[in-house]
Amino acid sequence: MRPTQLPDTRVILVKISSQEHNVSTNVRIGEGRLGILGGMGSEATAFFLRTLARRSRSTSDQHHVPFVLLSCPEIPDRSRAIEQGNPAVPAIIQMRLAQLEDIGCGAIAIACNTAHYWRGNFASALHVPMIDMVQATALHAARLGATKVIVLGTRSTMNLGLYDHALNDLNVQSIRVSDEIVDRTSVAIALAKSGNQDQAKEQLAHVVDACRSVNSDTIILGCTELSMLAASDATAADFVDSEVCLADACIRWWLARRGEDGNVGVSRSEESVNGA
């Protein structure tokens, strides 16, 4: 006996849902949503998404920030590209950002500190706001009263002073550290990317101890892998977590778009390169 074939109700359900909620099936998939370029690295991006959800303090699914994630782990190493002056890497990133804009995203965030080295070029090519992770983090550090800051991140982030301009504009001094600290931080990031979390945390612990022996009052976690590694210590009084700052800036953008109170985390709004 042949089993009874049930009718395919998928199309019917979609039509009913669209009618009930007045949703047009012709709207672009990213229309008005936050666009996130991630995959640099993949686990750190997943950690950022969890942070975004938790920081929203939403009480129901419907109140979370709607987003479209474009995960691109194939993008070559950003720090190496900066050191070698390789124009292909920022070109790939710019293409991916344009794709997020093309599907209708209302603002775009990049879940990678080092990629913000080219943020001015990215922002000028977009027609929607790009939420600036570096600017949001510098603003938060200044709001907390930071005066002397050590920024931890990839080799290029640290050696080329990715945060220097944003911090200096806020009268916050960025302190250079020894080559050993730069090297150990790079090792910690590489270990995290390869899945060796325990070893990576050990390296980061040595780095943080060394930083605290320097005359500084704040340590900026300027790499999403470092944010992931330091999650259990992220509330330390001298830590400013760039990933949390980016998440808060994204939430404020969404709340402002909805016409709600955007007073989440930092209360400043100058966090997008080309305006929000």
Rank of each mutant, 00 (worst) to 15 (best):
R2T: 05
Q5K: 15
P7I: 00
R10W: 05
K15T: 05
I16A: 12
Q19Y: 09
S24K: 11
T25I: 11
N26G: 14
G30S: 06
G32C: 08
I36K: 06
G38Y: 06
G38I: 10
A46W: 06
F47I: 05
F47V: 09
R50T: 06
R57W: 05
R57G: 01
T59K: 12
S60Y: 02
D61A: 10
H63T: 15
V65I: 08
P66N: 02
F67Q: 03
L70R: 12
S71I: 08
I82N: 04
I82A: 04
E83Q: 07
P87R: 03
V89W: 04
Q99G: 03
L100K: 11
E101V: 10
G104Y: 09
C105E: 10
A111T: 14
W118F: 13
R119W: 05
N121K: 12
L126I: 09
V128Q: 08
M130D: 06
M133T: 00
M133N: 01
V134T: 07
A138C: 07
H140T: 12
A141K: 01
R143M: 05
K148V: 00
V149L: 03
I150C: 10
G153L: 09
G153W: 10
T154Q: 09
T154E: 08
R155Y: 08
R155A: 10
S156V: 00
S156K: 03
N159T: 10
L162N: 07
L162H: 02
L162A: 06
Y163N: 00
H165S: 06
N168D: 12
N168T: 13
N171K: 14
S174P: 01
R176N: 08
V177P: 08
D179E: 14
D183H: 14
D183E: 15
D183F: 14
D183A: 15
R184P: 07
R184W: 13
S186V: 07
V187E: 13
S194M: 12
D198E: 15
D198N: 14
Q199C: 11
Q199S: 14
A200S: 15
A200V: 05
K201F: 03
C211R: 08
S213K: 15
S213W: 07
V214H: 05
L221Q: 02
T224G: 07
L226H: 09
L226P: 05
A230P: 01
S232H: 09
S232E: 13
A237P: 05
D238G: 11
V240Q: 02
V240N: 02
D241C: 02
D241I: 03
E243F: 01
V244R: 03
V244S: 09
C245N: 05
A247G: 04
A249I: 07
C250E: 04
C250W: 03
R252S: 13
R252G: 04
W253Y: 11
L255T: 10
A256S: 15
D261E: 03
G262P: 13
V264A: 11
V266G: 03
V266Y: 14
V266F: 12
S267D: 07
R268G: 07
E270I: 02
E270M: 00
E270R: 04
S272F: 01
V273F: 04
